[in-house]
Amino acid sequence: MSPIPATIGDFSVLPVLIPSLPSFPKSVVHYIYVRRNAPKVPTADDSRRLFFTNVPVDSTEVHLRSLFTSLVGAGRFESATFEHERKDDNSEAPSDAQPLHAARLLAAHGNKKRKRDDAEEVAERARDEKAARLPKSWTRTLHRSGSTAVVQLADEKSAEQVLKAIGKLHRGGSSSSSKKYPVWPTTLDAKLVPRLGTSWLKAHNVLSYPSKAALQTAIDNFSALFSRREQEAAELAKRLRNEPDENGFVTVTRGAGRTAPASMTEAEEAKRKMLERAEKKKAEMTDFYRFQLRERQKEEQAELVKRFEEDRQKVFEMRAKRGRFVPES
């Protein structure tokens, strides 16, 4: 057997030995592919970060930490971010929720939301988010098979060392090499990592029913946040009402005069009604003149012929599939 390649492209191949379990008594090798982190938008910490792909589905930070300890010794590993955790950032967070009309106003006015870069605002946001978040129903989430992770190490040197250590694994005889492979930790302390299997599923069922008080708090926090946003939006609307934009137009906003502009739902309703009325009027005018009647009859005849043609076509197609017309025996 030819040896496993040490690198594929710019990825180093990290073989990990998976110990056997009673239900599948066979030890196998899993391959993680590692390279230096090189995102499209570089950040300052890229030099001490490693990009992992094809991490095992049950990976946690604890797992990776232990893996690094066996590779380069303790103290090098700092943190790990998994694929779906990063994705969460993009998706809507509850604290982002704001009334639709506010969002529309902002968008329409070209007044991009201020970048809230200052640390205080970020912290506040995080706090809001945390308070409004619903309780989790899993002790541990799984990753999609073949997914990625970014690992942050203590310093740039550690990253170098890790890559070197991976390279080292591939040296030496192919037969003995698998013994040198780091072992995937399966017997971690349950205090560090919640166990999978029965207790995991059991915990899920328990966690799926959070205490009513906790849930109520989360919902209340969210409502408070949401109404604050609504408030802000109202204020913004008020401000915009008095402020012409660069073209000199004043935006029509909610609550301007005594007769407020209708909500979106009302507007849609009105439109539907109008269409209905138009439809009705149209229906009254059909078959009014003789030529309309004649034309309709002609159309019907044409339709009939068309359908006949279609039927013929269909039968013809069915004939192409052999055996459709032979009685079963």
């Binding site: 998976i18 056997s20 379990l21 239900s23 599948f24 066979k26 196998v28 090798v29 899993h30 391959y31 095992p56 589905v57 049950d58 799984l142 098979s145 399966t186 166990r195 999978l196 299997g197 029965t198 995991w200 599923l201």
Partner: peptide, 17 residues
């Protein structure tokens, strides 16, 4: 990596499997 996937499933199920 079929074997590794099966081993993963075994780890997910643990005593359930």
């Amino acid at each position: 990596n079929r074997e590794a996937i099966v081993a993963e499933i075994a780890r997910l199920g643990l005593d359930l499997i």
